[in-house]
Design a protein around this nucleic acid. Structure first.
Length: 823
RNA sequence: GCGGAAGUGGCGGAACUGGCAGACGCGCUAGCCUCAGGAGCUAGUGGGAGCAAUCCCAUCGGGGUUCAAAUCCCCGCUUCCGCACCA
């Protein structure tokens, strides 16, 4: 019977659905396992790069089920977002219509791949029953001061006509479309993620099963730095190098600094001053990032006193000082900071050396070529002269605090998360502005604030919701007077920051989720997704976990225990994308090879976290392997079905060998899938077993058949089919049935292995002379070291090499190798 | 500039705590089977020398540690990724 996978796919997918094979409920008697792939943005069609993620998760989920875990493996849709709305502007098709159609198509794709999702937990974030809880959370956060509104200069994308979070600005452009980002001032809602900056940083230490790369990226993003805040007159300066303060010959403030307006007003020519500031302010992010912008600045006509030297120093406005970081003002130490050095050179500011690499040399002579930025020993620094930088940082910090001139401080690069979006296709922010009462949250019992049906998408800069009077005009919940609703929607990253909690209890209409259910299922044990979410999604989710903890709804710190960032699938050396026209649609592959060959190939081609190049030839190879397994079982299933259970006694050499291979394969596949997550080598181990099975089958045919042999064969084939099932579930189920089993594979226990059987009783030990392989010795596995040594020295090949030379040492690595060291 | 990861046959990749480099697959070669094969089976396949047994060389380059290095350390090169005037 030929291997025809297409019919099997259909048959087993229907059976799984009818049997509710992947449904789960809380069951305290069993260990739980929450396996989650990042839910999908319904862009239209999933290509093989997208589905790699889901296949990896499915292999893990299916294995864990057979290993006895109560597995939660849900899926859903990150359904709000710009592309649907942008498409609506062009095509006139309402975002809801296109989104739901896309979801339907992609769901079908995943089902055709046989991913073992518990579809009854499915939801899309654009459903009012989901985004209601975004609003609920927003109000809870508002009540705790974690959501607040302020006028702020925001990143603005001209093309998408919306605000972007700092995290969404990539290389000075919009993360989505690449349009250079400009700035704009608007009233915006923010989430106070900075309140947890330290906690988010400390939590990283708990994330032992996350890739180092992601942890480093998060650490850098949070960007904690310890330093000192010092008053230079009325200007508050932040520095990490207070040890250089005697060399601070100037103070630089950012063009955005709050004191700048006063400086302008008090200057000789306020208009000219303001004009120059305006030039810097409009040198926006993009200009700053588009390579080396010339350092520029001007003198404010002001002086402040350096608290250490008591000397007046000039205050300059400098375009390279960032308004949003630290205090927006820095002390300039040209001798010990390269930027300050360049600036000082350009404008002729004094350069005073206060740190020296070698204290015995005294102050350096002549012109400096560049700033000396390393730590060293202090010179020309009053009572602190002679201290090391490290000592000075501590002592001078204490001095400043004692004198009341400042304090030691910690700064973070992380900024609060601006969540207002002037777009339609998102969660309405549940706030009302009353002329009398001010900002009033929508009462909980009125949630959700439903997104009204808008049919006209212009893409103009004002919020689309502002064009719907029935939505905007509302009575104030407090006083009943005239009021208007907030017309911005939330950043869609809000939706994805807590969806994994909702999966624990997706139909709850009283709360976002039942804390008891979350306590059972959370944290997510295994989380899989693209590395592009290393910062945004994963840091926001960690923030929300802390918010839920604050609300008393969860008691863990970190929501994701083990994170795997899967590599992308390339075609012709490039990332698959519609615009490049190099996408491979899984459905095309299914028609030709069936779901299992595709699944197996994607798992086999490389370790999950590596990038891979798609090749049709590789897929064919996987198909051939499955057909090979199919033919073997087809040929031997009657013998296997009727064979007695295997017993160790009375096996011949070939039988013992196959049995050893079986148990060793179980050992390898189990650790490869469960511990090392090397799914590619797990597949190779199965391939090796199949190769051995063919060799064994040949022996059976050539007169070696006997009942013990069939028993060993049965053990091997059954183990093979079970272990193959996470990778190729449809084929495995069918073969399992043909082997005489009526119970579906999802209920079958993973095979266990016997160490003793897996271990070879005879081993081949390489014999080296001076580290070079010269011979091999076949010995019983437990041969003692002394005997190994003797036998190695007695080996004829070895003898030839050591003849006439003095033996310096014989190293025996037990069970592994012997190395004879000679002169 | 700072930080992270990686560099192994013609290709994808293996090598678990330092212990036989190249498992497994793709591709290629030969043979068998077949009316036929883009099916299947068997064997071979890092480079070089040799009829052969066998020997020499080989994990980006150069040093080092070790009985033993793809693996550990130092210097350098290359590639990919992240951050980027963060004071």
């Amino acid at each position: 019977m030929d291997y025809r996978p297409q019919a099997l796919d259909k048959k087993w997918q229907e059976r799984w659905t009818n049997a509710h094979a992947f449904d789960s409920t809380e069951d305290p008697s069993r260990p739980k396992y929450y396996c989650l792939e990042m839910f999908a943005y319904p862009s239209g069609h999933a290509h093989v790069g997208h589905v790699r993620n889901y296949i990896i998760g499915d292999v893990i989920a299916r294995t864990k089920r057979m290993r006895g875990y109560n597995v939660l493996h849900p899926f859903g849709w990150d359904a709000f977002g710009l592309p649907a709305e942008n498409a609506a502007i062009q095509s006139g098709i309402h975002p809801e219509t296109s989104t739901l159609a896309n979801i339907a198509h992609m769901k079908g794709q995943l089902q055709r791949l046989g991913i073992s999702y518990e579809w009854r937990r499915e939801f899309a974030t654009c459903e009012p029953t989901y985004y209601k809880w975004n609003q609920w959370l927003f109000i809870k956060m508002f009540e705790r001061g974690l959501a607040y509104r302020r006028r702020s200069s925001v990143n603005w994308c001209e093309k998408d006509q919306t605000v972007l979070a700092n995290e969404q600005v990539v290389d000075g452009g919009c993360w989505r479309c690449g349009t250079p980002v400009t700035t704009k001032t608007l009233e915006q809602w923010f989430f106070k993620i900075t309140q947890y900056a330290d906690d988010l940083l400390k939590g990283i230490d708990q994330l032992g099963q996350w890739p180092d790369k992601v942890l480093t990226m998060q650490r850098n993003w949070i960007g904690r730095s310890e330093g000192t805040r010092v008053q230079f007159g009325d200007i508050d300066v932040f520095t990490t190098r207070i040890d250089t303060i005697f060399g601070a010959t100037c103070v630089f403030v950012a063009p955005e600094h709050p004191l700048v307006d006063r400086f302008a007003a008090e200057s000789k020519d306020p208009d000219a001053f303001r004009k120059r500031v305006a030039v810097f302010r409009t040198q926006d992010r993009t200009a700053r990032l588009s390579g080396e912008i010339e350092k520029d600045g001007f003198f404010t006509e002001r002086y402040v006193v350096n608290p250490f030297t008591n000397e007046p120093v000039p205050v300059w406005i400098a375009n390279f000082v960032l308004g949003e970081y630290g205090t927006g003002a820095v002390m300039a130490v040209p001798a010990h900071d390269q930027r300050d050095f360049e600036f000082a050179r350009k404008f002729g500011l004094p350069i005073t050396v206060v740190i020296h690499p070698d204290p015995d040399l005294g102050a350096p002579q002549g012109d400096l070529k560049e700033a000396y930025v390393e730590y060293g020993r202090l010179v020309n620094s009053g009572e602190f002269t002679g201290l090391s930088s490290q000592e000075a940082i501590v002592r001078m910090g204490q001095w400043v605090e004692r004198k009341g001139l400042g304090r030691r401080a910690v700064q973070f690069r992380l900024k609060d998360w601006g969540i207002s979006r002037q777009r339609y296709w998102g969660t309405p922010i549940p706030m009302i502005y009353c002329e009398k009462c001010g900002v009033v949250p929508v009462p909980y019992e009125q949630l959700p604030v439903e997104l009204p049906k808008v049919s006209n998408f212009t893409g103009r800069g004002d919020s689309p919701l502002a064009q719907v009077p029935a939505f905007v005009n509302v009575a104030c919940p407090k006083c009943g007077g005239r009021a208007r609703r907030e017309t911005d929607t939330m950043d869609t990253f809000v939706d994805s920051s807590w969806y994994f909690y909702r999966f624990c209890d997706p139909r709850n209409d009283q709360l976002p989720f039942d804390p008891a259910k979350a306590k059972y299922w959370m944290p997510v044990d295994f989380y899989i997704g693209g590395v592009e979410h290393a910062i945004l999604h994963l840091i926001y989710s960690r923030f929300f976990a802390r918010v839920f903890r604050e609300l008393g709804m969860v008691d863990h710190d970190e929501p994701f225990t083990h994170l795997l960032t899967q590599g992308m699938v390339l075609k012709d050396g490039a990332v698959m994308s519609k615009s490049k026209g190099n996408v491979v649609d899984p459905d095309d592959m299914l028609v030709k090879y069936g779901a299992d060959a595709l699944r197996l190939y994607v798992m086999f081609v490389a370790p999950p976290e590596k990038e891979v190049e798609w090749t049709d030839a590789g897929l064919e190879g996987s198909f051939r392997f499955l057909a090979r397994v199919w033919r073997f079982v087809d040929q031997w299933c009657d013998e296997a079905k009727n064979a007695a259970a295997v017993s160790a006694a009375g096996l011949n050499e070939a039988e013992r060998r196959l049995r050893r291979k079986t148990h060793d394969t179980i050992r390898r596949v189990t650790t490869d899938v469960e511990e090392r997550i090397h799914l590619n080598t797990a597949v190779s181990a199965l391939m090796e077993l199949v190769n051995d099975l063919y060799a064994f089958g040949e022996k059976l045919q050539n007169g070696g058949a006997r009942p013990q042999g069939y028993s060993v064969l049965r053990e091997a084939v059954e183990a093979l089919v079970v272990m193959l099932s996470p990778f190729a579930p449809h084929t495995a189920e069918e073969l399992w049935e043909r082997l005489g089993h009526t119970e579906g594979l999802s209920r079958v226990a993973w095979p266990s292995y016997d160490e003793q059987v897996a271990k070879a009783d005879e081993i081949v030990v390489p014999i080296q002379v001076n580290g070079k392989l010269r011979s091999r010795l076949t010995v019983p596995a437990e041969t003692p070291e002394s005997e190994m040594r003797e036998r190695a020295l007695a080996d004829p090949a070895v003898k030839a090499y050591i003849a006439g030379r003095m033996i310096k040492a014989v190293v025996v690595a037990k069970g592994r190798l012997v190395n004879v060291v000679v002169e």
